[in-house]
Amino acid sequence: MDLMHILYGVSFILFGPLIGGIIVGLDRKLTARMQGRVGPPVLQPFYDIGKLFQKERIAVIYSENFWVIAYLIFIVATGMIFFAGGDLLLVIFALTLAHVFLIIGAFSSSSPYAHVGAQRELIQLMAIEPMVILTAVGMYQVTGSFFVIDILAYGGLLIFVLPGVFVGFLYVLTFKLRKSPFDLATSHHAHQELVKGLTTEFAGPTLGIYELAHLYETVMLLGFVYLFFGANPLTGIIAVILVYIIEIFVDNATTRITWQPALISAWIVTIVLGGLNLIGLYLL
């Protein structure tokens, strides 16, 4: 890692939420248009987070706040490692760590709704993790390195050699972005939520921190998508935009499903698409 990349990493602290906020804002706008509504202003996510920080601090238990802060810190750290060109496996494992903090935060209040949300978030983690690991493994098989720098430096478009892995990754990306049909733990839409799932007991600034972390995470996950098209920045950015539009479309066109089909289908996709793609790489 040279200084340049470390700078990229550090700049993520600032640009992460900026870009993430605009993406989420556009998302809400586009969602509204798909439903025939006008929708909120593009800057709405910033207003929301700003407001949350202006609210009174309430908590069921003080340590709740601590776990959520830990979640934010580790999400930011993960993103920094990613954008500084670090090791993908480290990124994946640190991301898991961050989510474990979030889940423990939800558990700590022992509120029934947060509890159910936490269990579901765990199921989601279990559904996602294998495919994300396979994604990293696939990139390693092609480029010979787990480091983001080296993966980007690889000449060709990874999508051509890793189509199965890419589709599999898109599948679990829906979980990660908390989009329907896989928004089991907590959703942005009140209409399909059991109170507010995982985040039920987070209020005011604590919720603000959670939302902020979600912005960081969104940007980093889209960074993963970019890696598949990284050979050319233009194709990369177009691909990321297209992928996100597809996610929004799926979000609006489906309803939430129960955890059983979510988990099982994610694993089947992982084994079939991911596994076959990786084995195929050897045969080629």
């Binding site: 909120p40 202003p41 309430i58 009140a190 939520e193 507010k196």
Partner: peptide
């Protein structure tokens, strides 16, 4: 609903007192 669409004012129906204003 789309006809009135209060989300244009940033209004969201939360269903959870801890998130509400």
């Amino acid at each position: 609903t789309p006809l009135y669409d209060v989300e244009r004012f940033g209004i969201i129906n939360t269903g959870n007192p801890k998130h509400a204003d």
